[in-house]
Design a binder for these strands. Structure first.
Lengths: 214, 214
DNA sequence: GACAGAATACCAACCAGTTGGTATGTTTTG
DNA sequence: CAAAACATACCAACTGGTTGGTATTCTGTC
């Protein structure tokens, strides 16, 4: 029985892949190692070969999520736009488009995790923090450039605004999870993101002629 | 040994009181019945006398949270303001003031719960949904009245805007939980709420002369 | 043949929920 | 009106299944 000769995805990878779905569905605490291994098609021995504890696996999952999203957004199309405000708006619109499929597919792994482990595991908490805050930080340059071109009436901090985008997404996910079906969940998330877009447009003095936008 | 003749707070009440803190700290799944009972100073037998399962207790906790917050906001001072926009802003500012103390004291029970049980318990999920959405609904009348007095440039839905306030609070709590101390957590939550206030002001055509607001 | 990756078997601690029982309050009835 | 019958609130000990984690062995590759 050849174990894993040409099929690259090894146990570690499979576990991290499955954890992303599992955690968004049940949270970290309620995700058991046994079930995760079953989902990933991997034995428990393999799990504890690669990770010395469930907590360490939590940290690895947060880091993995960070790498995954970082790479994904680095290659996103909105970066090619000439205007920095358009790039910022492009980011928001891009994330709006990512709200598709089932709830556990478009919500956030680290946002879910941090809610329940912030008091019990500082390592996982810090890893989640890094993922969210570093991601927000990627927006700061565009926001600052946009503020130079379209100076807002109010003095606002670019870091704070970048973080606010993350807050709106996270909050939208919480509301989305409270609905009883994916279609309604997406609808709500979209609406919340539309408010965020509108806020940015108003902030930078753009007229919002989106008329009957849903 | 007289059990509970004149000492009013019975086991049921004590359990619900403790659960509010416990759930915000550890989430629902990771909260064990044993530990909850220990915290509440109640035996496990009492728990299962009042609630026939942990899940039913989760529903009761969400309903209890709903009643508690409903009552609390009904008596809040901002309702006496004459202008509906001021009442809406008053709500936001009131909630900003509630962000004090430790993280598990100002974050949201149902927001935490729904993230991890939305797939595993539809009963708890629905109870959380009701708590959040009914709470948002309380803002709709003031928002609609404000829109009549200060018509926004953009056509927006009052229900959607009301929901957006909840999204920002929920998102702020997620970010807050990712920090490593309560002071930083509050700082972030306040910043996010300031953005929300600014959005509302811009939306209703008010100039935001909050200058160097932190 | 050394060594990493993976499988099996196992454990002690822990978990939600159950049991059988006691103390108190309330309702029914002779 | 008092005793019997019932209902409620609670308790401590227990149970069967589950949990994170370990010890050991096996397998393929350099």
């Amino acid at each position: 029985m050849p174990r894993n000769t040409e099929t690259k995805p090894d146990a570690r990878r499979k576990l991290l892949d499955s954890a992303r779905m599992k955690i968004r569905k049940t949270g970290f605490g309620s995700m058991t190692v046994d079930e995760l291994c079953k989902d990933a098609g991997v034995t428990k021995g393999a799990f504890f070969h690669h990770f010395k504890s469930k907590e360490e696996f939590g940290v690895a999952t947060a880091n993995n999520w960070d790498e995954l999203t970082s790479g994904f957004f680095k290659d996103a199309p909105y970066h090619t736009l000439a205007d920095p405000l358009e790039r910022f708006l492009g980011y928001i619109r891009f994330r709006r488009e990512l709200v598709t499929g089932d709830i556990y597919e478009f919500t956030c792994v680290v946002g879910t995790m941090v809610q329940e482990i912030f008091e019990t595991s500082s390592d996982i908490r810090d890893a989640c923090h890094e993922s969210m805050f570093n991601h927000a930080e990627l927006l700061v340059d565009d926001i600052e450039a946009a503020m130079n071109i379209y100076p807002p009436n109010t003095k606002i901090d670019a870091h704070s605004l970048a973080l606010h985008t993350q807050a709106v997404f996270q909050g939208a996910f919480v509301l989305a999870k409270s609905t009883n079906n994916a279609a309604k969940a997406r609808e709500i998330a979209w609406e919340m993101i539309d408010h965020l877009e509108r806020y940015v447009l108003l902030l930078f003095g753009q007229t919002t002629n989106d008329g009957g936008k849903k």
